[in-house]
Amino acid sequence: MSEQKKDYTMHQAALMLDVHRDTIMYWEEKGLIPSARRNPKNNYRVYNIDDVMKIAEMRGIGAVDEEAVGKQKYKKQRERERKRQLEA
């Protein structure tokens, strides 16, 4: 049985590549990277880790930070907690 790969949003892929999400859209529009798959529920672009790695290779990005998504979630969680503490 094959393991299903996690899908990432364009924003999450941009975090891993350390580029702005508009950069990914530009690359796609100009044909510099393959078109992204689309989520059938909302038509948003989705990427798995293999897609992100391929983009990095095609655009000459040396390192992909696979932990960037988790770091961003943790940072937002800390910000929410800090905000709640200030409001209390």
Rank of each mutant, 00 (worst) to 15 (best):
S35K: 15
Q77E: 14
Q77K: 12
K73S: 06
E28D: 13
D7R: 14
K6H: 13
I49Q: 05
R21F: 10
L32V: 02
K30I: 05
D51V: 12
G70W: 09
M16R: 01
M16V: 04
R82W: 09
Y44E: 05
V64A: 06
N39F: 10
I49T: 06
E3F: 01
I49L: 15
W27N: 04
E57D: 15
R21L: 08
E3L: 07
E87R: 11
V64P: 01
E87A: 14
D51S: 12
P34C: 07
Q85I: 09
M58F: 11
E79D: 10
K5R: 15
L86V: 12
T23H: 09
S35A: 14
V52I: 15
Q12T: 04
Q4G: 00
A56E: 03
Q77S: 13
I24G: 00
K6W: 06
N43H: 09
Q85G: 05
A13G: 05
Y44W: 10
E66A: 08
K54L: 11
A63F: 11
H20D: 14
Q85D: 08
R82A: 14
Y74N: 10
R80I: 06
I49K: 05
Q85Y: 10
T23I: 09
A56W: 03
R80D: 07
N43M: 07
R78K: 15
E29F: 07
D65N: 13
R38E: 04
L15E: 00
Q12H: 06
Q85V: 06
P40H: 07
I49V: 12
A88C: 06
R84N: 13
D65L: 04
G62E: 11
G31E: 11
N48H: 07
L15D: 00
V69N: 02
